Amino acid sequence: MIGLQCVLPVMTYGTETWPLTMGLIRRLRVAQRAMERAMLGVSLRDQIRNEEIRRRTRVTDITQRVAKLKWQWAGHIARRTDGRWGLKVLEWRPRTGKRSVGRPSTRWTDDIRRVAGSRWRQAAQDRVLWNSLQKTYVHQFTSIG
């Protein structure tokens, strides 16, 4: 199980900066399950349930880890006052000619706004409130699939 404890930090490196979509979460979960099965020497043909494999490996779900990392990073970015690029990039709106056809792509802040509201940067200033909202944020991704 030591190998997987090394793999999870590598798999989640930089995920704080990704917009979390259901497709991304599904791909991360599939990759984690494949690694857990390989480490236990279990094949899909053995028909062992994912819950049993997770019980054996005792590793946290990658979805929980990714959501928690992103929430913590969002709070950190919102509280920074040193004028670095992080917050400026979040507020930037590109000037392009026409919009593309179809639904707009998921932005990094969309899922954060769903939990904390449109004034999420002000909510992040209060660490107690921000940490209490974290459980709700993580739960919205772990309850799916």
Rank of each mutant, 00 (worst) to 15 (best):
W73V: 00
Q122C: 05
V59H: 06
T21G: 07
L44W: 07
H76L: 10
R99Q: 12
D61R: 02
E91F: 06
G117I: 11
I77D: 11
A78G: 07
K68S: 10
I48G: 10
R49T: 11
L8C: 08
I48W: 00
L40T: 02
A31K: 14
E52R: 15
R121K: 14
L69R: 14
M1H: 07
C6L: 13
L40R: 02
M39P: 00
L4R: 04
P104R: 11
K68W: 11
Q47W: 07
I144W: 12
E51P: 04
T106N: 05
V128Q: 14
K70W: 00
T109W: 02
L8K: 06
P19F: 05
K98Y: 13
R29T: 00
R114M: 07
V59R: 09
A34P: 02
D111V: 03
R95F: 08
M11P: 00
L44V: 11
G83R: 06
K98T: 03
R103C: 03
Q32A: 01
T15L: 06
R84C: 05
V42P: 03
R29M: 05
M22N: 15
N50Q: 08
G23N: 15
T17A: 13
V101K: 12
P104C: 03
F141S: 07
G23M: 09
R26S: 14
T57I: 09
G117Y: 10
Y13I: 00
T21R: 07
M35D: 06
I62Y: 07
N131V: 02
L87M: 14
F141T: 04
W85K: 09
A124E: 05
K88F: 02
K70D: 01
M22E: 14
L40Q: 03
S105Y: 10
Y137R: 01
V89P: 02
L129E: 12
G14M: 06
K98H: 11
S143I: 13
A123G: 05
G83N: 05
E16N: 04
L87S: 12
V138I: 05
R26V: 04
W120S: 04
V115Y: 03
S105C: 08
G23P: 06
V128E: 13
V101A: 10
K70C: 00
D111R: 10
G97S: 09
A38D: 04
V10G: 04
T81L: 08
R79I: 02
R107C: 11
T109M: 09
M39V: 08
I53R: 11
I144H: 12
W85R: 12
F141E: 07
R99K: 15
D126W: 09
G75A: 08
H76Q: 13
E51T: 14
L44Y: 06
T12Y: 01
A124W: 01
A67T: 03
E91Y: 09
W92R: 15
S105Q: 11
M22L: 14
Q64G: 13
R58T: 04
R80M: 12
D111P: 01
L129S: 05
G41Y: 03
R33C: 02
K70H: 04
R37A: 08
E91V: 01
W71G: 00
G75W: 01
Y13C: 01
I25R: 12
R65K: 11
R127T: 15
V7T: 08
